[in-house]
Each structure stands twice: as C-alpha cells, then as structure tokens.
Amino acid sequence: MNWNAVLIPMGIFAGLGLVFGLILAIASRLFAVKIDPRVPQVMEQLPGANCGGCGYSGCAALADAIVRGDAKPTACTVCDAAATEQIGKIMGVETGKKVRRRAQIMCSGMGGNAHLKYRYAGAKDCIAAAKLGGGDKMCPNGCIGLGTCAASCMFDAIHMVEGAAIVDYEKCVGCGTCVTNCPKNLIELIPYDAKYWVGCRTALPGKITRTLCDAGCISCKLCVKTCEADAITVDSFGAHIDYEKCVACGKCVEKCPRHIIKSGEIPQKDA
C-alpha cells in the first residue's frame, strides 16, 4: 500500500486546518471587540422568540440596546415579571412592578352597527382596504374587520369571529405588533386586568358619529358624570378611561346609552 497517498493529503489538510486555525486565533485577538459581559446575561433572560415587539430586530438586538442604555430593562413585552426583575438586577436598576398589558380592539361597529360606504370585494387585508377610500365603513375610525391584526399576531392571540377581531387574553403578550399593523389605529394596549374599556375611537362630534354608526360614542359625557373615580374623560370627542384611576365599579357600563363601554371576563392569572 502506498502510504504516501494517504499521508500527504492528511498532512496538507492538517496543515491547512492549522494555518486557518492560527489565522483565526490571531484574528480573534487582533480584531477583538470588547463585549459587555452583561449582554449575554441579559440575552439569557429574554424569551428568544425574536418577535420584534420591543421595536428591535430581535432579542439579541434588544439585549444590546438594554446594556447600552438605549432601551429600558422593561422593554421586552413578552418576558414575565421574574425575568424582567433579573434583567433589572443585571443592569443594577430597580424595574418596579411590571404591568402586563393586552391588546383590545376599540370599535363596536361590527355586526352591522357601522354604516357602510361601499361594498368591498378586494384583497382580504385591512391595509389594502384602507387604501381604498379609508375602508368600507363610513366611520373614519371603524374596524374594517379583514383581520390584518389577526394575521400579524405572532402568538395566535387574535381571531376573527364573525367579522370582529377577538383577542385571546391568555395568549396575548402585549407585544403591540397588531397596534402598529392596524391601519385604523384602533387597537390599544390596556392593562391585563382592565375590566372595562370604551369600544369606540371616534374623533368626531356626536351628531356626526350618530349618522355613521349605530354604536359610536356620541360624547354625551354621561359616563364622565357617573364615574366616581374621575377616571373617564371626554377629550374633544370620544370617551377615554384612565386605568390608573379606574376602580372597575362598572357603573359607566350601565349608564352608557350606546352600550359601548364594554366589559370582558379576564381569566385570572399572575401577570
């Protein structure tokens, strides 16, 4: 057997490997970039889902930003309270109590309440529909109901039920992807345990809203007067609940003549 036929290639490849290894070893010293040891530590606490809910391209980018100080330690919307606290510890700051938030679609125009402008038969996408005269609803703040939010949700937390986007509170992590994707800007992140919300986002006077939708807020301010906690305000037009003040008494729900202050059963779970 000709041993040279085996030994020479082996030698050459070992040599090649050695040379490349050496070059890389030298290069890693030569081109060493100081990495903050906290970056991998923070990275470990992040969920690694790369959902982009924080506004960065992925968990690694967020970890980098947190350590650099560009992002708050609480910036991740997905990771739980314990992980957030850990990140705070790594960064040496107090994060405070993290409020878990969930998405809520602020419109009651489904089921024929909102009056139609035209019959839309185009691509099943709200963004595409919104390009056509702002969607098929008369109301400029009406849910188009084609499910762009549901399609954008990476956690399968929004489902279209009879033309209405229903948020699965258990699954929603409050990343806000749907908020940015809704062309009508109808989705709001509210505290996870918020029991009541105003299902309308109108910015028009009551008289006009009345002609556009059977369920729009007419800015009558009955809820403002009823609220004992001073939590509801009607800024220009349309009621808004301040969740810092809301005591969840539910009195506004009964008073609202348009029945658009809604309540949902929130599954009790530690935030």
Partner: peptide
C-alpha cells in the same frame, strides 16, 4: 469567520 471578525472591528 475571518471576514466577520474583521468587519466587526473595522
């Protein structure tokens, strides 16, 4: 690998 290190630095 080499290019990655080089780019990262320079």
């Amino acid at each position: 690998q080499f290019i990655e290190m080089f780019l990262r630095k320079y």
